[in-house]
Amino acid sequence: MIKIEVRYFATLRIDDKKKETLEIQEDISVESLLEQIGVALEDVAILLVNGIRTSPEYKLKDGDVMSLFPPVGGG
């Protein structure tokens, strides 16, 4: 098992849950984890792991921080 942190932003922040630490199986992909935690991949426009844009196929590692944003913008 590994520990990772998930951070939720904007409309993906449900019931004021800003972040949570999860214990998950090693080698699980971002896509699978999103399914487990009930976040639809198509709702995530900006997917970061440790602050770097990452693909849904990425296999999560111990200590990773995953940040999830819906489509947002500004200027």
Partner: peptide, 25 residues
């Protein structure tokens, strides 16, 4: 239909960028 102009900007304004830029360092 655009996620940014249709939902992101109306809901949060431009301020939503604070957390994004911060998460990117």
């Amino acid at each position: 239909e655009n996620g940014v102009t249709g939902e992101g900007l109306p809901t949060y304004g431009t301020a939503v960028l604070v957390n994004i830029l911060n998460e990117l360092g």
